[in-house]
Design a protein around this nucleic acid. Structure first.
Length: 161
DNA sequence: GCCAACGTTGGC
DNA sequence: GCCAACGTTGGC
């Protein structure tokens, strides 16, 4: 487990919040609906069981990192792409008969006692390397460096769910 | 393979 | 609601 990696996943709290994840059985859900190749490739090729993930609320009043989750199941097919009734329906996948997208299962572990807002993160020079603060960076799944992770952990004071 | 048009993201 | 940035699509 020495090669554990760290990640950040965005979610829009109006659609699916950290609290929604916590409320589920085992605090666990499949992270489906990712429809971007770069994000998919991270999940498919690099996400390993035991990796840790910051959950980030985007497109909301105060965008912020709000908690921590753990990867509990590695990549498997995201079949929500095949169902026309689903929000994340993907006609191309349906035409192929197999989803081109994948999901992983994540389990909520800790809640930041002090959510780290995007505004605060931007004010910390040591975090200027984060993809999150780069202009125009919309990637919904991003790698996080260990030193960035450790600093955010210290600042966010993670506690029980 | 190029690239214009279009759709989405997401901060503000 | 605005709109810049970016990704995808599809005609050629």
């Amino acid at each position: 487990m020495s090669n554990k990696r760290y990640w950040l996943m965005k979610t829009e709290p109006d659609t699916f919040s950290f609290d929604d994840l916590v409320a589920l059985p085992q605090h666990t859900d499949g992270w489906d609906g990712i429809r971007n190749y770069q994000a998919r490739n991270f999940m498919r090729d690099d996400f390993k069981k035991g990796d840790l993930v910051f959950i980030y609320h985007s497109n909301t009043d105060t965008p912020a990192i709000v908690g921590i989750a753990e990867v509990v199941r590695e990549a498997y097919l995201d079949d929500s792409a095949l169902d026309p009734k689903q929000k994340y329906y993907d006609p191309k996948s349906a035409a192929q008969g197999e989803s081109r997208w994948v999901k992983v299962d994540v389990k909520a572990k800790k809640r930041f006692k002090k959510p780290m807002s995007l505004k605060e993160i931007k004010e910390i020079p040591e975090l200027s390397s984060m993809l999150l603060v780069k202009r125009g960076m919309r990637l919904s799944i991003q790698p996080v460096e260990k030193k960035e992770w450790d600093l955010l952990l210290k600042l966010g004071s993670p506690g029980p769910l």
